[in-house]
Amino acid sequence: MRVFFTLTRRELAGFLVSIAGYVIIAMAVFLMGLSFSVLVGKLEVPTPMPIVELFYMTPFFWLILILSVPVITMRLFALEKYSGTYETLMTTPVGDWQVVLAKFTASLIFYMLMWIPLIGCMYVLSRYSNDAAAFNWVSIGTTYLGIFLVGALFMSVGLLASSLTRNQIVAAMVSLAFTVSVFLLSFAGEKFGMETDWMNEALRYVAMVDHMQDFARGIVDTRQVAFYLTLSSFFLFLTYRVVQSRRWK
């Protein structure tokens, strides 16, 4: 356990000590700011929707989710393999699971740090809007839960992509392809899912946009929570097997 914490701390320091981490945060804050101004524009027309839900409906919100994950995860394994530190790391008595989980945890913590400025946006809105009912902390909490769960899934995919290569660009492209296509699946149902019911049903389970909508409304559906947790665990397991596989060859 101590080894796990030591590794997590180092991974997190890797983000926060280098300029790369701050560039990612700056990019995210910039997109949040754009979303915020779009949102303020929308609010000029009276709307029955809660503000968080409106916020996540802005395209920039999804842009942050989809773009930040590959950038955060691409370095995790690929950089270590490229620079050779992977060899120094894996020749110490650390367990493969410890390495995988530490990298996953550190990137997830960094990702959640990146989302903190969003609370500021929400606060400004609640402070200056007249309608107190449009804003409540529970829906913010569930939105963050949603962001966390989607992030966990995307991070685990990014981690897997990074473990497969020593080239950061390749790792980023693979996870970007995944995040974009999973995101687009949300709209697949509307596009051609009408023919059969089971297809529609299946697509509804993976429709992230719908899931986020629920979270933003303050609805926590255990089916969705289970969906994200099992899928993340599955990808973490695959990453573990990839790390282990150097001992099979």
Binding site: R10, A13, G14, V17, S18, S83, G84, T85, E87, T88, T91
Partner: peptide, 11 residues
């Protein structure tokens, strides 16, 4: 100590 002595340069 592997070849080229890889280290975490930001530490």
């Amino acid at each position: 100590m592997p070849e080229n002595n890889p280290l975490y340069t930001e530490m």
